[in-house]
Write a protein that binds this DNA or RNA. Sequence first.
DNA 1: GTAGGGTTAG
Length: 485
Amino acid sequence: MEFLILMIRNGIRPNMFTYSSVLRSCNGLPILKQIHCSITKAGLESDVFVRSSLIDKYSKWGELQNALTTFNEMETSDLIVWNTIIGAFTQNNNGDEALNLFKRMKKSGFMSDQATLTSVLSAVTGMALLELGRQVHVHVLKYNNQDLILGNALLDMYCKCGSMEDARFEFTKMVEKDVISWSTMINGLAQNGFSHEALKMFQTMEASGSKPNYITMVGILFACSHAGLVEKGRFYFEKMETIYGIKPGREHYGCMVDLLGRAGQLNEAVKLIHNMEPGPDVVTWRTLLGACGMHRDTGLAAYAANRVLDLDPDDSGTYSLLSNIYANTQRWEDVEKVRRTMRGKNVKKEPGCSWIEVNKEIHAFIVRDDSHPEIEKIMREVNCYVKRLREVGYVHDTSFVLQDVEGEQMEDPLLCHSEKLAIVYGLMVLVKGKTIRIRKNIRICGDCHLFAKLLAKMENRNIVIRDPIRYHHFQGGVCSCGDYW
DNA sequence: GTAGGGTTAG
């Protein structure tokens, strides 16, 4: 930047090379907009290099509208600029638009390369759409079936779509594996509830001579915490620095807080938080809050919730959690207090939403939303299943019912949870034997978890539910999480 | 003889 200013002062006119170079070091949105202005003034906007750099930088600042405008105003495009705009939407969690652009790109006659396909795979991964992922896989095969980066992206896609069979198969087929391949598998197995397999894979990784890094260790500790392996987790946490030379960061401390908290060692967890070197952040406190909920420690829960709200005052999830915890211990005045605070701050509860992919179309179910064309039929089916499941031991777990002070008490709020609707819809429309795969925006409640377990057994169906942090594989009356999540 | 853009794991 300094040299650019010096250059202009010396009367030398910057050209497209100057601008695409200086854009690399652009570290603020106002500066980016200024540079964009001077590019326009200098009449250098038509250069594809300058354009793609601008698009990329706008996207890094979350300015998708500016990125798209810059893209659409181009007369000529090339493969890289297409990759840039597709990547922009992928990285900003707008997989839908990324896929639309990918279609547009193909229609314009461009052939995808490694960068296109990794972005598109990453978009599909974010949406957890397995059938779409398989379609992209075909494009990958046409491009290059031995590419390491694409192989890794495929592994991640299958893991995040909850199909470990596919992930394992692709992994064994890879001719070359790097630390990302191993870490993807370890994390994928752990998140899908196959903790022991994840730890076994770590041993295989070490035996093969690959060295774990920071992210690999996150996966290992995540596996330990979700399998309740307290001692093993402690072992890896202590040895990661001495043996592997990896300094524990927030994420590792977070896993340890989770590990101790789940195991009921709440005081140990608090001690760790107060002593952790990077200092706790929102995620750390939220983790502790989750553990307080599992162990019904309302006092500590209130403390943790307030630390979360110090750092993120509009976090509706935390208010809901806190209110749930108070409700579970019959502290109705406190429930009301939380509700009042939420109303005062105008914080809205995030509605639960579940998606299911049927014939490459996405069907979304939202609590209290009856816009699905077949909602009445689905509700009737849910009721039928509930009746039949009661005969095999299904009892409502009412500790998950939020007191609804806004009135309009639902006949049975648990019946309306979006995942129940999505699962039942899957049973109605998917061919017999096909795994039902659901993606949802908030974590599954105990009642829906039991519902899914019993239903999987009664209907002899595999059900996979992906929530924001992990997966549940329901099969034959049990879940891969071991009821520990 | 010299300068510039996009992609994978928590």
